[in-house]
Write a protein that binds this DNA or RNA. Structure first.
Lengths: 68, 68
DNA sequence: TAAAATAGAGCGTTAAAATGCACTTTGAGA
DNA sequence: TCTCAAAGTGCATTTTAACGCTCTATTTTA
């Protein structure tokens, strides 16, 4: 769906922390099915879902001027 | 819903470009209703919606390690 | 301050996100 | 190669995002 970079960041961060999808699902409060789908590149998560995952992984979502 | 910063960035960027919600809706392909709700702090947009708005406004969404 | 433009809200519909459960596939190690 | 853990998929349900239309509220400007 064109979120390759974001998906990649989440997945790589999770793996570098040696956390399974199941554990991350528990920690973040996101359903396991939802996380699986997301990492598999399916679907279009909501901002809330992304935020929950980011919070659990110590990642922050920012929006800034391109190039700036 | 806790996305204050993101909402604020979108809204301020739109205003600094002197673009109305209606114009941004047209340019981005996001429905006017959806944009209005989002800027009003209601709801929980999908990543795709956020990406469309960001693209139209020259903003990029990034996810990175907190503090890093 | 009256008119016009812009922003926000209510209501209803459609499409899809989020979820659980059960099953299959894949990968790493004994 | 067998086993077990982790990842990925199918199916069904519930919730809700996205949306248009209409109306109201607010802001801007002539």
């Amino acid at each position: 769906m064109h979120f390759e970079n974001i998906i990649k960041t989440i997945k790589e961060r999770r793996e570098s922390l040696r956390v399974t999808q199941e554990t991350l699902a528990d920690l973040s409060g996101v359903g396991l099915r939802t996380l699986k789908q997301f990492e598999a590149g399916k679907g279009n998560p909501t901002l809330l879902t992304l935020k929950k995952l980011g919070d659990a992984l110590g990642l922050e979502l920012t929006l800034k001027i391109k190039g700036g």
